[in-house]
Design a binder for these strands. Structure first.
Length: 152
DNA sequence: GCCAACGTTGGC
DNA sequence: GCCAACGTTGGC
């Protein structure tokens, strides 16, 4: 089992948006970066991911989601009206895919990026790295445990 | 709003 | 295959 971190701009899709869904489950559409796509391809049922709010303050990890459906084609790539449309993608050979994620738990207090930068043991975390932009990242089990133990 | 740090595109 | 120009991400 692996651990991940997935970013979302709250203006696009927020933690509250997820919790407001009856199923508390959403498909993680719109990934259009090959490295990020390759990571979601690797995600397995039951894997856990930190849900991270980017851009809008407070920039922070909010909670945890679980992968409840593995990689399958993202229909928005075929929708010419979608901002995620990719004219070079074909039904027989789709470029982009997504997974479904479900609300798992929420931290009693959010964990801000500023805070994470000061935690020993997280110095090499991808999220902390200068210039890091990947919207889907791998989190080591060590990093995962450190972060989960911050707020208890 | 700025800009560093990418990723992508397209001419050659 | 190189790389300049351009576009995007996302923290500050």
């Amino acid at each position: 089992m692996k651990y991940w971190l997935i970013k979302s701009e709250p203006s696009t899709f927020s933690w509250d948006d997820l919790k407001a869904l009856p199923s508390k489950t959403t498909n993680w559409e719109g990934v259009r970066n090959y490295q990020a796509r390759n990571f979601i391809k690797e995600m397995k049922l039951g894997d856990l991911a930190f849900f991270y709010h980017s851009v809008k303050k407070p920039i922070a990890i909010i909670g945890i989601v679980k992968i409840v459906k593995e990689y399958y084609p993202d229909p928005t790539q075929f929708d010419s009206l979608s901002k995620y449309y990719d004219e070079k993608s074909t039904q027989s050979n789709p470029r982009w895919g997504m997974v479904d994620v479900c609300y798992e738990s929420e931290f009693s207090k959010i964990i801000t990026l500023d805070e994470l930068k000061n935690v020993s043991g997280l110095e090499n975390m991808e999220l902390i790295r200068k210039g890091s932009r990947l919207s889907v990242q791998v989190v080591s089990s060590t990093e995962w445990n450190i972060i989960c133990n911050l707020k208890k």
